[in-house]
């Protein structure tokens, strides 16, 4: 693992009306690293990663992704950065009017219009095989289980070969076994595609298995950071309460 920070966030602040959600968040993620962000509901975890891809405009602070401050980019420039980032939404956010195949081909064809139909289908099959969903290629999102929706969403992010993947609660709403499968998938994806990831989760098993480093958000700032083992033995009772 090299020590090049792919993501560097400095003094990130964000308010919604009078509610100051982020009060100066600082962190960095190195290339090839999996950073897990923990925190109570409403602590600003999802807001942080949505700011990183420009879905939510920031109030203040610098967010360098691939060395470029995303808050200062034009829409066109931001889209060029977005093509190098995958984002897994909490509910999967699959296009519900399209089949699994079309969910994947939609993004691919949009960005690579010169690819032949055969090449598109090969890429789709390859990615679906990697997430274990090749047999569900023609199913509609409404026919998929919760775990399959997450797998399809992972496949959809992988189709554009991102260098960074942001996971927003990848195991939310799933049973223990399926959650473990998704955690294993995150690790497999990182190994195969050499991605760097930020994983927002409440699932401690997922945090333990996927995270190289864990960061805990409290009251709009980073309250604690370290490895799973370090934080589990923290002197701060509030930090330890996550690991019980």
């Amino acid at each position: 693992m090299t020590a090049t920070p792919l993501i560097a966030v400095t003094n990130l602040r964000k308010s919604f009306g009078t509610n100051e959600v982020l009060k100066g968040v600082n962190f960095s993620v190195n290339e090839g690293e999996n950073l897990v962000i923990l925190g109570r509901s409403g602590s600003g975890k999802s807001v942080t990663i949505k700011c990183l891809v420009g879905l939510i405009p920031t109030d203040e602070g610098e967010m360098k992704v691939f060395g470029t401050d995303v808050a200062q980019l034009s829409y066109q420039e931001l889209n060029e950065i977005r093509l190098r980032i995958g984002f897994l939404f909490q509910g999967g956010a699959l296009y519900d009017s399209m089949s699994v195949r079309d969910n994947l081909s939609f993004t691919l064809k949009h960005h690579s219009p010169k690819l032949s139909n055969e090449e598109v289908q090969t890429r789709i099959l390859e990615v679906l095989e990697n997430v274990g969903l090749a047999e569900s290629i023609d199913k509609m999102p409404s026919e998929l289980s919760g775990g399959m929706v997450k797998r399809t969403a992972v496949a959809r992010t992988l189709i554009i070969k991102p260098e960074i993947i942001l996971y927003d609660e990848p195991t939310a709403g799933l049973d223990t076994i399926t959650s473990r499968e998704i955690s294993d998938l995150i690790l497999a994806v990182q190994k195969k595609y050499k991605t760097t990831s930020i994983i927002i989760t409440h699932d401690m098993a997922c945090a333990k298995s996927t995270g190289n480093r864990i960061m805990i958000l409290k009251d709009g700032v980073i309250n604690a950071a370290g490895t799973y083992d370090e934080l589990e033995k923290s002197s701060d009772e509030w930090v330890r309460s996550f690991f019980i």
Partner: peptide, 18 residues
């Protein structure tokens, strides 16, 4: 509206599709 509340529009946005 349904696409908006289920984050499908955001998914399109982060995929660099306007």
């Amino acid at each position: 509206g349904s696409m908006k509340v289920t984050s499908q529009i955001d998914a399109m946005e982060v995929s660099a599709i306007n």
